[in-house]
């Protein structure tokens, strides 16, 4: 696991989540940021800030990315979502195309 292969996602409150690029690219929005030829500032520093996404939701999203990779590789478990998070989570998922 190399530093260049990770990306740092930063929540509204300034909490940082360091995850594999491969996991982050489960999100179409992040994939576009990281792969588009125009080279976003985000791509170069490997950091993406989400001022609209709270820490609890962003962590849940990161867990979802990894769950999604596990699921794709054949490990079929359920992904638990607390009901009180569901609305905010859906809004974030919509934004991230996840």
């Amino acid at each position: 696991m190399k530093k260049e292969e990770t990306v740092k996602l930063i929540s509204a409150e300034g909490f940082e989540f360091v995850i594999d690029k491969k996991a982050a690219m489960v999100s179409q929005t992040i994939r576009n940021m990281l792969t588009s030829p125009g080279s976003f500032a985000e791509t170069q520093h490997g950091e993406v800030t989400f001022p609209e996404i709270s820490t609890i939701i962003l962590e849940k999203i990161c867990q979802y990315f990894y769950w999604s990779l596990q699921f794709a590789s054949g490990k079929e478990t359920e992904f638990h979502i607390e009901p009180e998070l569901s609305l905010e989570l859906m809004m974030a998922a919509n934004y991230l195309h996840t």
Partner: peptide
């Protein structure tokens, strides 16, 4: 602190 590393 405020940082979380997801480690495979």
């Amino acid at each position: 602190n405020k940082t979380t590393y997801f480690i495979q």
